[in-house]
Nucleic acid binder design. Structure first.
Lengths: 256, 256
DNA sequence: AACAGTGTTGTATTTTTGGCAACATATACA
DNA sequence: TGTATATGTTGCCAAAAATACAACACTGTT
């Protein structure tokens, strides 16, 4: 597990520069990494040669370079949500023991585009490709609470717990927004509880939701917050993976 | 100008991986760079440690990693079109000797958001913040030809050369699209000719246009193609600087 | 079952690097 | 204005780190 020191140092410099607002000087970089000025200078020059950093002509401070943009952009083209979500779905299954799902918004409904099944004998199965209503599923409520789609026209009841009242749903949605994850408490299928959280892309736009579904016996109301934070953390990790920057969201919120 | 070899090699690897569709194996990388397998292996491991590449669990091939996305995204937030366009405007002034302008689309007009003045005694000046019509300015025609905005409702004449006929303008726009730059031949101000070309952002969307304006005596019809290619090349360079990938555009065209 | 292909890991050599110092230049201060 | 403290860059040589070679483990193929 030998690391190439000079390469590692170069990469550390890139990471450093990310967190500096106005770029950094050679000395500053050297101090942060506890290396000599001369080393920092040469590393920075090499990075600059390849466009990974660039030096302001006059202030001679270094900032991240355009090559990173090129490479990052290139990467984006190759990304498909489903491919990237898969390991996170597995993670959810590992941590919760319940089935995990990925859904996107399509035709004003929640479209299941992937699932990872748990190994438990008693488990909830749902087919990939299925469209589900927004108002009574955890994945759907995520779309409503965090996305920019409008409220459903009709709210058909599926169980006696299904919320069919618009104002009740809106109250649930603000609650959902506040805590960061949505809950479906036997509102779509009897005996099934679901928890889901939003997934954002690199631009901070909602691209989908991931969540878990399990029998009410295991996904109890007492433990549901615990499940909630697991789901939320996992969803956040996936968003980061897609290039989502938390700061971006804050800025977007501020714009409103 | 000593380069840190191992860092340079690491960066070269990143550039290599950009151009490979399904990632690359250790041996492949080593051959491409004419280095030993073992060196490639260690470099790749170091890159992976910092998330700049990642190794597929089963195929063990390497692809670009999420860290590049993070850094690239971060960079985007800092970018403002105007800041980045400035050096290119200077470049235009240096190469052509005429004033250079940057405009974006706003309220269905061309909004001048920056200019760099030439040092020539006789020069065209226009104020930053001015809105100009689309149908009779080079910058405006760029918006019409390369952007997705619709045709202006009315086409007011400013000189006797102003095109006020819709079909004539459309013919001009297809010509503009074909050659990659737009021309204003004394259609807005007497004695002034302008040339402009489109600027695309990292997503391949038109974000603005840059161009030059000069007295008809210097910007002659004979030399206008020469100016055109300079402007186009500079605009393309700026687009690349903003993370625009030529391949992206081609794909977008193919989609139509 | 032998083989050609991967990717990874020891190890000795030697090249490359990194720190020291000196230098040049810029900014602050009196 | 001159002095003083920053900064960033460059020569140099010792020293350490990277390299290439080789051996190894593993996979899939003929």
């Amino acid at each position: 597990m030998a690391e190439i020191q000079s390469l590692a140092r170069g990469l550390k410099i890139l990471n450093l520069l990310e967190h500096s607002r106005n770029g950094m000087g050679t000395t500053e970089v050297a101090n942060q990494l506890s290396i000599d000025k001369s080393s920092a200078s040469r590393l920075l020059h090499t990075l600059a040669n390849y466009g990974f950093v660039e030096q302001d002509e006059y202030s001679s401070r270094y900032t991240l370079g355009p090559q990173l943009l090129t490479l990052g952009q290139h990467l984006l083209n190759r990304i498909t949500l489903r491919d990237h979500a898969r390991p996170y779905l597995h993670e959810l299954v590992d941590k919760t023991g319940e089935c995990a799902h990925l859904a996107i918004l399509a035709q004003r409904q929640a479209l299941y585009i992937d699932q990872v099944e748990s190994t438990a004998a008693l488990r909830v199965e749902s087919e990939i490709g299925t469209l589900s209503p927004l108002h009574c599923t955890a994945l759907g409520k995520v779309m409503l609470a965090f996305g920019d789609c409008c409220m459903p026209d009709e709210m058909k009841p599926f169980t006696h717990r299904t919320v069919t009242d618009r104002s009740t749903l809106e109250a649930q949605l603000t609650q959902t927004g506040a805590r960061g994850y949505a809950i479906d408490d036997e509102e779509y299928n009897y005996g099934v509880r679901c928890v889901a959280a939003p997934v954002y892309d690199h631009r901070g736009a909602l691209v989908g939701a991931i969540g878990i579904s399990g029998p009410a016996g295991r996904v109890t109301l007492e433990r549901i917050d615990e499940f909630g934070s697991v789901v939320k953390d996992t969803a956040d990790a996936l968003s980061t993976r897609l290039g989502y920057d938390a700061k971006l969201r804050r800025r977007a919120d501020a714009d409103k």
